[in-house]
Write a protein that binds this DNA or RNA. Structure first.
Lengths: 256, 256
DNA sequence: CGTGCGCTTGATAGAAATCAATGTCAGTGG
DNA sequence: CCACTGACATTGATTTCTATCAAGCGCACG
């Protein structure tokens, strides 16, 4: 990771995202994809599996709760939110970014258990699940990589359970900001300066707080000199103290 | 499921649990185990994999946060709690029962991310992970079964995230009671009459509430005629209204 | 220029936490 | 046999945090 840190861009100007028809070799998701670590022969076969690169416009839905699982989706570039309907209102369970794999919650039942909604114009690699399962038999490292990714997802969610179950609002927000920074950092962007792609309402649902609380917390953090906020552009001016408030976060990346 | 419903037993008298040396064929976990659905030949090989049946006394720890993953554990009989340490106090992330697979959170990193503590004298089948991974290559259905289980675990946790993020205390408790009933029902016990194996404190940590709130909620539910409680023995006298309060729970069991 | 959406800010209410005291019971040892 | 202890649980009084209610702002868009 020696490239200079970039600030994560704002919303893409419409029309910029012409179809990228490259293969996995061109992929810039930087070691986060399912295919990472495969030898070149296996990678070619994995390439052939990828049905197509689908372009999803901001606001569009990739899959919905109740739909049968056809494909998993590797997020090539863009930004999603995952929404799970529940008896007490919907919950946002995650904000996947480039390189992440979408749809794992459907593998157990064959039915999607949540909605995936693009927060900006995005491109996904479609991985037909039946074909992927067949490929597991042939490519030795792939299925290992697959269930390790799932285990990491389990950890991500347990991290969130901790947040929702045992943190107060302030600590939740600090954790959220720190996590976002870490996610950007993992992709070569600045960990301290980024665009929020989601609305305050989405953040609220994600953190188990109301939109008003989110607003107040951002205001309070600003007054404390921890951050500056301008609409959805955030700068962590004191990342260390934010990390201290969040205190104890450790990301989970799979062994390759 | 035609056997008459039994009431889940209280704590086992000490000394009752002599070592059960049977193979998977004798196992009474009823289709919840990893080996379910294998043909008899594969089952035999799976049998050989099972290193030993370890007896874990109530209060003892099966694995701890930070330890390297050596084995997964299929819970043959007994009851555990899973505790995840966090910056804002520990969180109980689950109460696995007979038939469930313990240790999946460690698969991604190779390091355990939580503690598994027996709530009563239990017996686990030890599945050395390296050997299990080798077996995946040979037994076609096993690997599929494995990652479907993991996907179900993801769903279980998202269900909990919903609970912690968007439900009020009363609804959380109703959901907990309904879920416990369902878990017993899936094992052939009465869904409306069971022993809680965990302390109020454990329930509180699990539901993101204090021990006092748990106590008050149980009291309130009793006054409302929904349940009767005597120490840790619970009877759901109005399971339907409890289900309505929880409203919308659907368990996730893998396609075999 | 209005209209609507996303966001902020203030006042108030309410749910659960916290603080504090008491109760119950199993186990222990005098 | 009974008093003592400690873990676990219940109950009440009070505080605190966050939700809720309400109003207004700013900006994009038709």
């Amino acid at each position: 990771m020696n490239a200079p840190l970039r600030v994560s861009p704002g919303p893409a100007p419409p029309g910029l995202l012409t179809v990228m028809k490259g293969q996995c070799g061109d992929c810039n998701t930087g070691g986060l994809c399912l295919s990472t670590g495969l030898d070149s022969g296996s990678k070619m076969r994995f390439d052939r599996l990828v049905g197509q690169h689908r372009r999803i416009a901001a606001g569009d839905t990739l899959y919905r709760t109740g739909q049968p699982l056809r494909s998993l989706y590797a997020l090539r570039c863009g930004f999603f939110k995952i929404r799970r309907p529940g008896p007490a209102g919907d919950q946002i369970t995650g904000f996947p970014m480039a390189g992440e794999l979408l749809g794992l919650e459907a593998v157990g039942t064959g039915i999607h258990q949540s909605d995936a909604i693009a927060l900006e114009d995005s491109i996904v690699c479609e991985l037909p699940f039946a074909a992927l399962e067949r490929l597991f038999e042939d490519i030795p490292g792939l299925h290992r990589r697959f269930y390790r990714l799932m285990s990491c997802e389990i950890n991500r969610e347990q991290h969130l359970m901790l947040l929702l179950g045992h943190m107060r609002a302030e600590q939740r927000m600090a954790t959220f900001l720190a996590d976002m920074g870490a996610a950007y950092a993992a992709r070569g962007y600045s960990p301290a300066q980024f665009q929020l792609r989601m609305s305050r309402e989405d953040i609220g649902s994600y953190l188990g707080l109301t939109i008003e609380s989110i607003s107040r917390l951002l205001g309070r953090f600003t007054k404390l000199g921890l951050i500056t906020v301008d609409k959805r552009a955030v700068v962590l001016t004191d990342p260390q103290r934010i990390a201290e408030m969040a205190s104890g976060f450790s990301p989970c990346s799979p062994m390759v």
